[in-house]
């Protein structure tokens, strides 16, 4: 019963030595806060604890959300609100000003509609491929593998890489002297400059974002698969159910909540695609990989004809799409929670 009393190790001593000034600081903070507690009561301290976070949150998240609407109703190139003149819904009208609604090139803001179109096709293709590959990966990782955590790590690895690094890695590989051409060369294909071809850059952005994020979604799906009780599979086996039927009738329905979450998350992320594409193609060649976030960024900050109001209007439109997607996700989450409670 008597475990040996642990004596402090060197690291513990070092730790307490390092923590000493922190403890002193905390004691110092305690003195004024005790006075505050006396005055405000225990309940009042909740406000004190909440204040720093909410203050920062209010200034840098909530306030911009509100100001964004003001921005979208004003014109000019100035950034200070007081220097901007009110233009009403002009910015929105400008975004929707088109001669022929089927042809983005006929719109006044053709870049916006090109970005919308590109983003739409990107989202559709990327998300469907993402779900497919993530599901396959999760199913495979859920098998009785040797060294499963190693394989999980393999697919998860790119998730942590910064988008800039991802972009540069692939820019290097898709180079004329890059690894891809080298690989194809072994089969007699001549080297090709992939990143100057409009069609291939679009494919490349999809492939690269798949590479970078697939592991994340596979991980969520894997967690969902592992949460399915083993005895269900054993019961199905006792009934002599065919594996394909087990997949369609047991695995897929029980995975559905996770799958829906993954779909919505992937949609939300795909709509906002920017960083890796910006580094990989810069939106080009031409406007072939110009996506919405880059349009907003360039309209608001980067281009010579910058127009923050127009960028704000476009960002609000994009925000609306995201709000809808988020609401769907919250709805799914709540349904899942209720199910879990039952």
């Amino acid at each position: 019963m008597t475990a040996p009393t642990p004596s402090p190790t060197l690291t513990e001593r070092l730790g307490s030595l390092l923590m000493a000034p922190v403890h002193l600081l905390m004691r110092a903070i305690d003195i004024p806060l005790r006075a505050v507690q006396k005055a405000a009561g225990i309940g009042g301290m909740a406000t004190v604890f909440l204040a720093p976070n909410m203050l920062i949150f209010g200034i840098f998240v909530l306030l911009p959300l509100v100001i964004n609407f003001v921005y979208s109703m004003t014109g000019g190139t100035a950034f200070f609100l007081t220097e901007r003149q009110f233009v009403g819904a002009d910015q929105y009208a400008r975004l929707f000003q088109c001669a022929n609604y089927l042809d983005p090139m006929s719109c006044q803001e053709d870049a916006f509609w090109t970005a919308v179109g590109n983003t739409f096709w990107f989202v559709v293709l990327q998300v469907s491929l993402m779900i497919l590959t993530a599901l396959i990966t999760a199913l495979i990782l859920n098998r009785d593998l040797a060294a499963r955590s190693f394989w999980r790590a393999v697919f998860f690895f790119p998730v942590l890489l910064s988008p800039v690094v991802v972009g540069l890695i692939w820019k290097w590989i898709l180079q004329r002297q890059g690894l891809l051409n080298f690989g194809l060369y072994q089969f007699g294909v001549e080297p090709y400059t992939w990143l100057t071809d409009r069609n291939w850059t679009f494919v490349a952005t999809i492939g690269v974002s798949l590479w970078a994020h697939m592991g994340f979604y596979a991980l969520i799906l894997l967690a969902g698969l592992q949460a399915i009780p083993k005895d269900l599979y054993e019961a199905a086996e006792m009934d002599g159910t065919k594996p394909a039927r087990v997949f369609w009738r047991i695995t897929l329905p029980l995975l559905m909540p996770n799958l829906l979450v993954v779909v919505v998350l992937a949609l939300i992320r795909a709509v906002q695609i920017f960083d890796e594409v910006y580094v990989l193609t810069g939106g080009g060649p031409g406007t072939s990989t110009l996506y919405l976030t880059q349009y907003i960024y360039e309209t608001g900050f980067a281009s010579a004809l910058r127009n923050p109001g127009l960028a704000a209007a476009a960002s609000i439109l994009m925000g609306l799409v995201l709000v809808v997607l988020t609401l769907i996700q919250l709805g799914i989450g709540q349904r899942g929670e209720k199910k879990g409670k039952r």
Partner: peptide, 29 residues
């Protein structure tokens, strides 16, 4: 405390506010 659920709601609702939506006004701030 009063306003706790409001604070939670605000935090949950903005869980998904991406930078791309607020970058213009945030820059001005």
């Amino acid at each position: 405390f009063r306003g706790r659920s409001l604070a939670m709601l605000v935090i949950l609702a903005t869980l998904m506010v991406p930078l791309s939506v607020i970058m213009v006004p945030l820059y001005s701030i």
